[in-house]
Design a protein around this nucleic acid. Structure first.
Lengths: 141, 141
DNA sequence: TATTGTTATACTCTATAACTATA
DNA sequence: TATAGTTATAGAGTATAACAATA
């Protein structure tokens, strides 16, 4: 594949959006394999490294706090997480993954890593380095 | 940014997933700006170049046909598309975008192009060419 | 008063199952 | 019988508005 032609902006945008759909399809499939929704998987992903309050969770997920109440309700009913009182603030809660929730997200994350990495099977090691560099620069923008 | 280090596979996967969320956020925002959902915008995107039947639409969107019935119901009520009888098959329909639906998707697509391209503002022309090449190779995989 | 969180309500999106009409 | 599509039903996800409890 040559680099001598100027990039077509629309082609780049189309490629980026198509890539998005391909990756979202992986996430969707992995979530479904564990019988949860993508948003629940994402929520568990946050709980991997955080014990956020409801408001913090709403900010991470870009949802209204009332939506998060419902998400956590259903996840709690499934035994994936629990609400704990905040030690500092009598109004606030901390949402914590249960061992079951942790198992699910660890397994899911491993599958996502394997499958998404698998999308890059056609690239060389140098290509992957280059791709990572470019994406990191986009995300830093 | 140097290329002398070997790529960390997990870092690449994380970057790809984060990029996905960033682009999905753009799509979500553009859809919301036009007061439609992402799935409705995507549906209209299909109607830009096709006049599919309900079953075909379900296949494109990877949804059950009954889900598509509801999507088209609501879009039709908003005047964005209409069902027409198929000339060939008495059972089948063709779904066609109305001028209003066409306006919406043309405007939305332009905004998406502008905003997604904007994400690459920190890249040089050569970087963009390289990025396009890499993504095309992933999608061809 | 402001903040944290829940609840009531309404709507969209989705799948499953049962149905109608046409092929 | 098989296919194209709809409808009934149920549940998840979401936002808005009103609320309770704490800061």
């Amino acid at each position: 594949m040559t680099d001598i032609l100027p990039a077509d902006d629309r082609a780049l945008v189309d490629a980026l959006v198509q890539l998005t759909f391909a990756i979202q399809a992986v996430l969707q499939r992995v979530a479904a394999a564990h019988d949860v929704s993508m948003i629940q998987l994402r929520l568990l992903g946050i709980l991997r490294d955080h014990e956020p309050g409801m408001r913090e969770l709403a900010r991470y997920l870009n949802l209204d706090k009332s939506s998060v109440s419902g998400l956590v309700d259903r996840a709690e009913q499934r035994g994936l997480m629990r609400r704990e009182p905040s030690p500092d603030d009598g109004r606030a809660l901390r949402v914590v993954a249960t061992p079951l929730g942790r198992e699910l997200i660890e397994a899911g994350a491993a599958e996502i890593e394997r499958e998404v990495f698998g999308l890059t099977a056609g690239l060389s090691e140098a290509d992957r380095r280059q791709l990572l560099t470019l994406i990191v620069r986009i995300l830093a923008g």
